[in-house]
């Protein structure tokens, strides 16, 4: 057994209708303790209506070294954006 308490990443939904957003992390031995710690640490000023806690060790992140390969190819696909297209000013609702 390790004597290091696991880290949990904390996500807070500020209000219904919004998605959960990462706010930081807490240490807790178990999931229930992590939820409570997240509540006591990150919602003291009524910042949330729902919490997610995820063991930090289970998050799989993309490698910054691959950022160019992953994200650069999207940069020149400007035809995916509506502003790419020219429509006469007198044509409405489009």
């Amino acid at each position: 057994m390790s004597n290091v308490t696991p880290i949990w990443e904390v996500f807070v939904r500020a209000k219904n209708g919004l998605s959960h957003r990462h706010v930081g992390s807490v240490h807790a031995a178990d999931a229930r303790g992590a939820v409570e710690a997240a509540r006591d640490v990150y919602t003291r000023r009524a910042e949330g209506v729902s919490l997610w806690v995820v063991p930090s060790s289970t998050i799989i992140a993309s490698d910054p070294g691959e950022a160019a390969a992953l994200f650069a190819p999207a940069e020149d696909k400007i035809y995916r954006h509506p502003t790419f297209y020219v429509v006469p000013d007198n044509v409405k609702h489009i």
């Binding site: 308490t5 240490h27 409570e36 710690a37 006591d40 003291r44």
Partner: peptide
């Protein structure tokens, strides 16, 4: 015992 518990007891 931990910062987390410290905050909880204060709450």
């Amino acid at each position: 015992p931990t910062l987390e518990v410290d905050l909880a007891l204060s709450n």
